[in-house]
Each structure stands twice: as C-alpha cells, then as structure tokens.
Design a protein around this nucleic acid. Structure first.
Lengths: 337, 337
DNA sequence: CTGAAAGCGCTTACAG
DNA sequence: CTGAAAGCGCTTACAG
C-alpha cells in the first residue's frame, strides 16, 4: 500500500533511486541499496504491478484463452488439467503469471472479437490458446494480435503465432500398425469431428498405415464420433452390426474407446478376443478400466511445457517456430489388444 | 494501441469526455457519444486496463492461488478442472478475469509469503485459494491480505475470508448408513491424511454414523491413506489381512476406493459379495469402472460457482459468510454395494 | 552513483 | 453536458 514516493521520502533518496534498487540494483551503491531494502521490508513496500506495466509496457502476464462458455454442455477437455499444471509451472518458474481472460462483453461483438479485445486491453506479453472444441474458431482472430501466440491442437496463422500438438499422424500409425501386427486385416476406425485438426490427422495416419500394409479400407468402416463416450458407444454398435464385422477398431480418443468397450460388453463380446481395440490419449481411466485399454500416449506435461517454452522463446526475441511443433506419441499395450 | 488522447484529439473533445463515454455514457450527450464510439471503432481504440487499474484501484481480476510447484510429484486434484470451469464461467459472466499467480520470486521469502506478495502487487479484487495438498499451509498468510478471499476445502481465517467445502460429514454419514442398511456391522474405513480438513470431517461423519447405529468401531479398522490410488490398495490389503476381515469399507476418496477394488480383485475377492465398498467424490471413473463404484457425489460445479459467488458478493460490499459454506453431497448407489 | 522531470494512459472531483 | 487539472505509482532517458 505504501508507494514508492513514501519509501523514497523515508530513505531520503529520490524515487528514481528506489526504482533502481528494484530494477537495476547493480547500478546503485551498496549502502543506499541496503538502506532502501531494509526500509522497504520495514514498511512493507511492494512495487505496484499496474504502474510498472503502464510504464514499461510489459506485464509479466501471459493470457490464456480458453472458452468455457460457448462449449456444448458436457464438453470437457480430456486432460486439460495436466496441461495447465505443466504450463503454469513452467511459466511460474520464470515469474510469469497466467491470466485466464474473460471475453470482452461490449455489445455487438461477434465471439471471435471478444477474446482478441480482452487480450489487447490487458497488455499481456503473450497468449496461449486452448482448443475450445467449438466449431466456431472464435479464437483465430488472435492471429491478428501483435503478440506472441501459441495455440494447442489448433492451427493458427500470423507472424507471431505458432502451434503445438501431438504427433497425431504418427500415433495413429503406431496404433494401426500394432493392430496389423496382431494379425488383423479388417480394421475399422471411430473418428473425431471432421473439422477438428487432431481428428483429421489421426484419420490420415490410420489410412496411411493401412495403405502401407496393402490393406484395403471399406469406407463403411470409418464411422464418425465426436470424441465423447456416447459417440464411441454408438459407433461401435454400428460397426458390430456389419456383417462380417471388423475384427479390430482404432478409436481416435480414449473416451470413445471406452464407449466402444461398453458397446462390446453390451453385445456380449470381449476385447481383444472378439474385437481388438486401441484408443488415443492415454487418460487416467485407460489404465484402470479392465482389461486395460491399449492406447497412444500423449505427452500431456510435454505439451504444457512446450507451450510455455514457445512463449518464452518468443518473449526473448526469437521468431516463432514456423510449422506446428509436434510432440512424440507412444504406444502402450494393455489388455484390449 | 491508440490512446485516449489520440481518440480525444480526433473527436475534438477532451479526454475526460472520452473517458465518460466508456464509463458513464448516460452522462454524455447522445451526439458526442455516438461520435466518439464511431471514431473509437474506426481507429480501434481500446481502454488500457493497467492505466484503469492504476487510476481506479480496481483491476477486475480475481487472483487464483494454486500451488503447482510445491506439490509432491504426481499429486493431482481429482476434479480441479470441473471446479475451474465453473469458477471461470461464473466470473467471466461478470467480466472478471482469473489471474493464476506465480509465487513472488524475491530471495529470502518463505513460501507462505510468496503468494501473499504476488497478490498484493497485482491489485486483484479478490482471491480464491485452492488446497495445494501440501502439508505446509503456505497459503494461509493470505488471510492477512486485505482482500476478499475464499478458500476451497481449506480453513482460512481473516476478516475478509470465507471457505467453501462439501458437506463431508454428511456425505460420510450417508455412505456409512448405506452400508449399515445393507446389513453390515463390521465396517472399516480408509481415511485421507489426518491434517487434511475434508479427510478429518469424513472420518468424523463415519464415526458418528456408526455411533448412532450402536456399532462399535475397532480402531484397527481405521487405516490411513493419502487420497492416492496406491494408498487405497495398500490399505485394503491391510484390512484383508485381518481375521476376521471387515465386510464393508468406506474409502474417503474415489481414487483410494479404486485402489482398494484392485486389492480386492488381486485377492480373488469381489465387491460387493465379499466386501462392500463405497467411495467419495464421484469422479468420472467411478461410473465407468466395473461393477460401478458406489460413492458420494460432490457438486463440483457448485463448488466453483459458489466460490465465484462468494467473491462477487464480497466485491459488492457484503461481509464474508462467517463459517464455511457447505455444499450438499448425495449418495449414488452402483455396483460395489 | 544520483536526482529532476517527463511520460505511461487512464479517472475523477471541481468548475463552469 | 464538458473541460482543465491533478493524481494513480511507477520507469527512464538526460544531466550532473
């Protein structure tokens, strides 16, 4: 609460000097430095961040654009919490705060402007964007903000923008190849929403692995889900209704895989004997649900850390990585294959 | 980027007038208001929040104190994400941003000061504290900040502080009574860490329900876990080693309950026939893991919303609710009982 | 090594 | 309904 002026007065120095002991201590004499520091501790002086931001144009805050409001009810990022922990930890280690922005509420804005304006008003040093799972890429307008910007699982363009995502193509290929190695040659897939970037990549990886193995794909074996459990259930039911039915299924997300597993059980079938199943994500449940879901692991902590590093690298003047940064995925074999 | 001065100049009015059209529009003539607004849109003027905060001492930011760094590795709040979504949504609806604070990095601070200082420097309008699961209540110093403050699952004192938690006593009683109604009279419990507030309450609820039913409790049937899966596994093994063994177990957290279930299976036993089991939390897995975990539901969204409401109510001048605000818990019966 | 002064971009009594 | 002016709490050339 006590201001720099008060502290300066008590120390008999100018506010400039006080400012220097907090910002460029090496430039002030040891004696005055110690005096100022001691007095600061005594009266509980703490520099006001708003004033600093106003004066320096640097806020030490990274904006987080995460649209919790326009979501379909029930939407839930499968492992956002893990990403957030890693992101916040890495940022915190550098003294950067993470500002979860509320969309600007001015009347007459389309949703894609609301976050952009919130970003601009707050002098954040950078922004990280998390896929909101909505069909409306409200958020892409942020490419226009002249601020370092990293998007997770979302394509974004702009001179200060970059993206981070898992190796979805590679992961899907691993999953598919694993099924092939298990001897399957009639392999179906349950996909995510067509316009979702990771979903598209996983489908592409699936196709390419099949192709490479010379296995033909019946398009009726490609059934669309929406990443939610229920859609996996429904999709598996459609697959089971086929005659003959596929002997293996690659579900492009663990939640859907678990829905698919339920459909199997409901039909009196079991994995892997009747149908082999592999998922994608490696969420906590995957290891816990019997017989254990074979799946592709995303490096959740790595994603959060990479996002922080991308921001910080741009903050220190580097150009953004041109293409998306892709994190390795790995196969973890459990009971369903 | 264009400042209020620039906009004023272009409109031929004073900066005071421009400020008024954004803050108290009803006080300026319709004509100038429209003119200013139009010009603002044209040149892309947006008020600078740091400057506003500096001038008004109100930041429209709520600080979030969530210590991701001092956690034991692997610690993971079982449903923080759900709380966060609700909290952020409710805050956003009122135009409040959520600032995830990095602890102050000044040398020579003990950890309990770091967050307090971060709070003080940022002129946040309020702060919400999330239990960091650490034994060191680093965070309790925040009771000293002269700022509205709500803590989740954590006791905090101070003239501007209040707490929010689930009805842990009531929930534990429900769980225990349910077991009693199922005919059990030898009921054990797996507890959380003794100094954890919800853990203590759940144990108290468990005891009181037993008491009320005139059922004696062998203290060897109270075994301590730490809320993690592995501790549930270990605890159940200890319980199974008893002779005779308990016929029912109340685990004070779902993760531990799932660990307990695994221990059961590993011993070739099943729930509910050999041992009945009820958990606490109702995390996603509870419904998914066969045979379905009977548990106590916490209102995760309600907790986040209540936190936002408590803050906002204090922001509008109300005194903090004196005691902790307690959210109802409910029993959901599934396959393990 | 230190100080005086201007400036960062806003808000808000105070007059009119 | 509007403007001139002081003030919010800092930083940073510029001099010395």
């Amino acid at each position: 609460m006590s201001s720099i002026r008060e502290l300066a007065r008590r120390c008999g120095v100018s506010v400039a000097t006080v400012s220097r002991v907090f910002n460029t201590p090496e430039v002030v004499s040891q004696l005055t430095r110690q005096h100022v520091l001691a007095m600061a501790a005594e009266i509980g002086y703490l520099p006001n961040e708003s004033a600093r931001t106003l004066a320096t144009k640097k806020s030490n805050m990274v904006g987080l654009v995460w649209d919790t409001d326009h979501r379909r009810p029930g939407w839930r990022h499968p492992f956002l919490q893990d990403i957030l922990v890693a992101l916040k930890s890495a940022l915190s280690a550098q003294g950067l705060h993470l500002l979860m922005l509320a969309p600007d509420q001015s009347a007459g804005l389309d949703s894609r402007q609301r976050f952009l304006r919130a970003v601009q008003r707050h002098s954040v040093d950078g922004v990280v964007i998390i896929d909101n799972g909505s069909r409306d890429p409200a958020v892409l307008a942020l490419g226009d903000a002249a601020v370092p910007c990293v998007a997770l699982d979302l394509r974004i363009t702009g001179p200060t923008c970059t993206s981070i995502t898992s190796d979805n193509v590679g992961g899907a290929r691993l999953a598919t190849q694993h099924l092939i190695e298990r001897g399957h040659h009639r392999i179906a897939t349950i996909t995510g929403p067509a316009r979702n970037w990771p979903a598209a990549e996983r489908l592409a990886g699936f196709r390419s692995a099949l192709d490479e193995a010379g296995i033909a794909l019946d398009e009726a074996d490609v059934v669309a889900g929406d990443f939610y459990l229920d859609s996996g259930f429904a999709a598996m039911n459609r697959l089971l209704a086929r005659d003959p039915r596929p002997t293996a299924v690659f579900a492009a997300g663990d939640e859907m895989a678990i829905g698919a597993l339920r459909a199997l059980h409901a039909a009196g079938l079991r994995a892997p004997d009747d149908v082999a199943l592999v998922g994608f994500d490696d969420i906590e449940i995957a290891a816990l649900i019997p017989p254990g879901l074979t799946t592709i692991t995303q490096d959740k902590t790595g994603i959060g850390t990479a996002a922080a590093e991308a921001i910080m690298s741009m903050l220190s003047g580097d150009a953004p990585t041109p293409g998306p940064t892709t994190l390795p995925t790995t196969l973890v074999v459990r009971g369903t294959t």
